[in-house]
Simulated scan of single mutants.
Amino acid sequence: MSTDASDLGLPLGPHDDEPHGLGFNNRLNWLRAAVLGANDGIVSTAGLVVGVAGATSDSKTILVAGVAGIVAGSLSMGAGEYVSVSTQRDSEHALLEKERRELVEEPEEELAELAAIYAGKGLSDELALRVAEELTAHDALGAHAEAELGIDPDDLTQPWHAAWASMLAFTVGALLPLLTIVLATAALRVPVTMLAVVVALAVTGWASAAFGYGPVRRAVLRNTAGGLVAMVATYAVGSLLGTHVL
């Protein structure tokens, strides 16, 4: 159980809303997957339907292409996230198992290593050794894994969380450009879709920065610029191919 300033009877500081408790690693994991999925769903589907709209004005063709893109994209994103995060989790388990074995076979060497880590952070040798001894006595694996490996044994990455977050976010994000371009009139469908996509990407950029404690302006500009480039490029390709093929 985590301890905060109020539990110790200390006054709350200006940064006490920062994420210090358990679960932040998984929060970042599914947040990253959700934001990536939403962005990919918005941009890839918008690029697909805008590109098709550049080649043909037939709403049915655009709809079929968009739905096929959503199904393929959401499954691909989910599978990709599951494989990627599963590989990371397997590595975490292997490193933790190695640390468990070393704590049993080489307890003195591990204690000295932990003390050296804290001494390297600025503690005196005596204080670093005392801190290492107390942390090892309280939770040996947790203390050594966090200090040496940067892993919290109680907060390992969850592959299914990332997979579902990515799939659902991709689908939700992809529905916006698809519905916009299908429901809008033929003359306005491309500019209206581009405008809707820019707004949506600005929102996802803001959300990723807000929940991930990053710079908002940079995230918004990065998202919207990438989406615009993708849509303009695919529309140009669709228009070129539609002129010469259809």
Rank of each mutant, 00 (worst) to 15 (best):
D125W: 00
L176I: 15
H138W: 03
L178W: 01
L178Y: 03
D152N: 15
P159T: 04
L111P: 00
L135Q: 12
P153C: 01
H144I: 08
R130M: 06
V182M: 03
I151A: 07
L168Y: 11
P153M: 02
E133D: 03
G142M: 05
A119S: 09
D154H: 11
L123Y: 04
E113G: 14
G122I: 00
E109H: 11
A147P: 13
P159C: 04
D125T: 13
E109Y: 09
Q158T: 08
D154M: 07
A162C: 13
L123D: 08
E126P: 07
L149R: 04
G142W: 01
H144Y: 07
A116R: 15
L135V: 00
G120P: 01
A169V: 02
L129K: 12
D154V: 00
I117W: 07
H138R: 14
H144S: 09
M167S: 15
P153K: 02
D152G: 12
A163S: 11
E148D: 14
W164R: 10
H161V: 08
E126R: 06
G150R: 12
G122L: 02
A174V: 06
L114C: 02
L156D: 01
G173A: 04
V131K: 13
V131G: 07
T157H: 13
H161L: 15
T157I: 12
D152T: 11
A169I: 02
A147K: 15
L168R: 04
A137Y: 04
L111F: 14
S166I: 01
V131Y: 05
L178C: 12
A116F: 07
L123G: 08
Y118S: 09
M167C: 13
A147T: 10
V172W: 12
P159V: 05
E133N: 06
L178D: 11
H144M: 05
H144F: 08
E113K: 15
T136I: 06
L179N: 07
H138D: 06
L141H: 07
E110Y: 13
A145K: 11
H144K: 14
A162R: 11
V131P: 09
D154P: 01
H144G: 04
D139M: 01
I117V: 08
H161C: 09
L176S: 14
A119K: 08
V172E: 08
A140Q: 09
T157P: 00
S124C: 01
E126C: 01
P177I: 08
T171E: 10
A140N: 06
A140L: 04
G142V: 05
E110F: 13
